[in-house]
Design a protein around this nucleic acid. Structure first.
Lengths: 337, 337
DNA sequence: ACTGGCACTCCATACTTCCGAGTGCCAAGC
DNA sequence: GCTTGGCACTCGGAAGTATGGAGTGCCAGT
């Protein structure tokens, strides 16, 4: 249906259009790429490509530009992810490694990604439910009051005050703390309820009430899943671009948490960079943008997603490279810290 | 120098230009406002206003538009803050009262303000620190001097010397210490001001002064420790506007925390709405925007600032009204919760 | 001090012309 | 059967050219 040369022509059209932002004609194509045939031949190929819906003409006598379908084919079959340069990698590393808490990691990541791709970056906070317990701390803060501090392996810190039923001795607290940490160390938050199920049986009868209180608060904390938080940066990079829909629509969409969430989409196959092009996008206002996203995490654990939003006319290979690289580094940082 | 009619003319020019976004001519002025004189007279007045630098002509044969200096005079002497409508007030109230934690309050506030003014809203966090109070210690170090030690659950220890008003007995100190710890147990640093609000009422009349001194130092300490977190919303409202500098510059400036901080400016006289117009603005990229800001808090306590950024051509009276109203409500919410 | 009148300026808009890049098609050639 | 050079055609964008109207400044008269 589409022979190799036609594919090559499509690839060339995409590449040229992305870099020049002008409809590309048959003449320009043979000049810039050595395709070994004449412009007339290319014209024939282009006619076919157009008929199949991969490219289109803005006006009767203008060059061709890729359609969403054309970009899709390009991304799926005609391009490979372009790895970052050494300098860029080093930049990522130094920039991210300076972060000192989760907010900082996410903040730096989103700015870094925006700068790297010169587009709008979107980063989702690691979901609480998918992270695991790193440490549980239990401190007496006053008579009959304990403070439960839950630190996750993603750097999130949750804390709650527990009203203990009656006086609790230092020993009991120490014992309980030890038990909790033994049970929960490295335990996924989703599994916490199971892991602690038999904990009351392990403490002495005197400590049952306090253990129950602690557990009830602990479980409560988990259930209150923090709304999935998500941030973006680099809106300034949208300034020059002209969308078919107005810039206003795009900016409005970006400010809606819900839309942002949908934007990054479902986690497809893990550790794959997914691309959503133009009309493939669920949201009304973002029909003239593309989204390149992937998930991040460490080991088998997927924590959340991050990605980039830009005009459909974007440099997909480089963008995908940047997104993938940043995702890896973030996972690494979160795992190591 | 400028008689009443000239001032009225300037006011009319500002109002018309703000609402129509087109240079306003002498004819249009006498038509829309009943100034009781002919257009020729107005022309003479306008010539004077222009010579003094309050208005300018984009082109030789166009109407006049206000200069920054003209807006300044308008804001200072020719306009009064316009109170919000009842409906708007009610909207604020219902929208903000649903908030359940600090993040939520700030998030709702910034979106509300953006929507209300149809411009970019900027809100500074009162506190961002995630840590909580573990323990507060109060020790006498010398006659009339106390040491306040604040231990957070992250292990940070802050200490400050308090100049007590007169002699303070051991008992009083012990009582106060107990009260503080009861109030502040496990309390996030952001919520400390709220938690201690009614504390002076709980101590005996003799201890009021020392309690006040302690609280004032405590709050001061917290204010200094605030990380400078600040958020904005409503960037979409910039879309239609044309700045002399490019939209990109404005968006870039908005994404810089530092610039945002400077933007809201120093807290002037408390509970005053401050306006910074065009070139009065410190930042390079924001020379064609105006900022309307004020501080918020409750009682005598100033927590942080919030405001609105828009084109110099903005409806100052309404914007100032909205900013002031929102600031008051936020203070109220934070005090009440 | 204000007003009507008048000559003048100059921006916006619309209309025209013109050029060239790009196309589709066809007949000839490998 | 694919490829190619040639050719007529299309149409958008740039550049040039009216034209109208809003607005101004100035002046003489009330």
């Amino acid at each position: 249906m589409l022979d190799d040369r036609k594919l090559a022509v499509l690839r060339a059209i995409v590449e040229d259009f992305v870099s020049t932002n002008e409809p590309v004609g048959s003449k320009a194509l043979v000049d810039r790429h050595n395709l070994g045939v004449s412009s007339a031949t290319i014209r024939n190929d282009m006619a076919v490509l157009e008929e199949q819906g991969y490219i289109a003409q803005p006006h009767t006598s203008a060059g061709r530009i890729p359609t969403d379908k054309g970009y899709r084919l390009f991304v799926d079959r005609l391009s490979t992810i372009k790895p970052l340069s050494v300098a860029e990698r080093r930049a990522i590393e130094t920039f991210l490694s300076g972060a000192y808490d989760l907010d900082d990691v996410v903040g730096r990541t989103v700015r870094l990604l925006a700068q790297l791709t010169r587009q709008v970056a979107v980063v989702q906070y690691p979901s609480l439910t998918r992270s695991a317990v790193r440490h549980v701390e239990l401190v007496p803060v006053a008579a009959g009051r304990l403070l439960l501090v839950l630190i996750t392996n993603t750097g999130r810190v949750e804390q709650r005050v527990i009203e203990a039923p009656g006086e609790v001795s230092e020993e009991s607290i120490g014992h309980l703390r030890a038990l909790l940490n033994t049970c929960l160390d490295g335990c996924g938050l989703g599994e916490v309820p199971i892991a602690v199920a038999d904990l009351p049986d392990k403490v002495g009868p005197d400590d049952r009430p306090v253990a129950a209180a602690v557990l009830s608060v602990l479980l409560e904390t988990l259930v209150e899943k923090h709304e999935e938080k998500i941030v973006f940066a680099g809106a300034a990079n949208l300034a020059g671009v002209d969308f078919s829909r107005s810039l206003r629509d795009v900016l409005e969409a970006l400010e809606e948490q819900v839309v942002l969430m949908r934007l990054l989409g479902e986690t497809g196959d893990s550790s794959t960079v997914t691309v959503r092009i133009g009309t493939e996008n669920p949201d009304e206002g973002l029909r003239s943008t593309s989204v390149v996203a992937t998930d991040y995490g460490f080991g088998d654990l997927t924590l959340a997603r991050l990605g980039v939003l830009g005009p459909t006319r974007m440099d997909y290979p480089s963008t995908m490279g940047a997104v993938r690289a940043v995702a890896r580094y973030v996972g690494q940082i979160l795992a190591g810290s």
